[in-house]
Design a protein around this nucleic acid. Structure first.
Length: 262
DNA sequence: ATGCCCGGAACGTCCGGA
């Protein structure tokens, strides 16, 4: 099963890019972020024609997440538990082929001297609480999306320039480690432990993509049973080089078949 | 230098992004 995640930065603007990429890459499951549309405006028909079922949690102008799947989607849950006052459309999960799959858009958190930063940190704590519950359920799961977080300095082109950025703050990284230390596996890093420049985002500004100035902030985290099935994971750089590109590019992983009991 | 480039909402220009 091939699972991909992509922050498309407006599904309306990116629909042609997405449809072309679905045809070329043919992932089984795609997790989207930053749709910037309400559910009624999501292009279900075009994506359905491409062979995908959809589950969407939309919002006007900001945020918005979706799950696309060739297999049927069931038990859809919208929103990350833990704060009834949080109305940002940043989290959706569902069951597909015996796996619980989540598309998440973790808050950016900049500037760090505003309430945006503690909102990010609280959101990360809620994600860790939720991951703890998922582990207790013993259902295999994937938590993938735009984490807005560089786990280590090798994940950012210039650690010095990002020293004051919410993506690289010690408080952000500490909470990310708390999540990982539950026993999750970063699919990309597990297979490419020393590969720097494996960026998934390049700013539109100042020719950042042309100059190779990116950050690795989109991640696929696997529960232990799925980490055992991981056979490949890579960043697909091509969509970022296209005309009218998102500022993020997709990352995907391939999971082998479920091992048979012996 | 705290802006450079985008998308959205809206129609002048600001917010959010990272």
């Amino acid at each position: 099963m091939k699972i991909a995640t992509w922050n498309v930065n407006s599904i309306k603007m990116r629909l042609p890019n997405l449809l072309e990429w679905l045809k070329e890459a043919s992932p089984d499951v795609v997790l989207l972020q930053e749709l910037k549309v309400v559910e009624n405006s999501f292009p279900d028909l075009e994506i359905g024609d491409a062979g995908y079922n959809t589950a969407v949690w939309g919002q006007q102008t900001y945020n918005g997440v979706a799950i696309l799947s060739k297999l049927p989607i069931s038990d859809v849950k919208r929103g990350l538990p833990g704060d009834q006052d949080d109305d940002h459309a940043r989290y959706i999960e569902a069951e597909i082929g015996g796996i619980r799959v989540a598309s998440l858009y973790l808050p950016n958190g900049n500037p760090i001297n505003t309430d945006k930063f503690p909102y990010k940190l609280r959101w990360m704590e809620r994600l860790t609480d939720h991951a703890t519950e998922l582990l207790e359920s013993e259902e295999p799961f994937v938590l993938a999306g735009d984490y807005n977080l560089c786990p280590e300095d090798q994940d950012v082109f210039s650690p010095a320039e990002f020293a004051g950025d919410a993506l690289c703050q010690p408080e952000s990284r500490a909470r990310y480690r708390e999540l990982m230390y539950l026993g999750l596996t970063d699919a990309f890093r597990a297979l490419h432990p020393a590969e720097a420049n494996a960026y998934t985002y390049w700013s539109y500004q100042a020719g950042a993509h042309r100059k190779g100035q990116g950050v690795r902030i989109d991640h696929i985290l696997l529960s232990p049973a799925l980490a055992d099935r991981l056979v490949a994971c890579d960043v697909d750089r091509k969509p970022r080089a296209q005309a009218k590109a998102s500022d993020h590019t997709p990352i995907w992983c391939e999971l082998g078949p479920e091992p048979q009991p012996w």
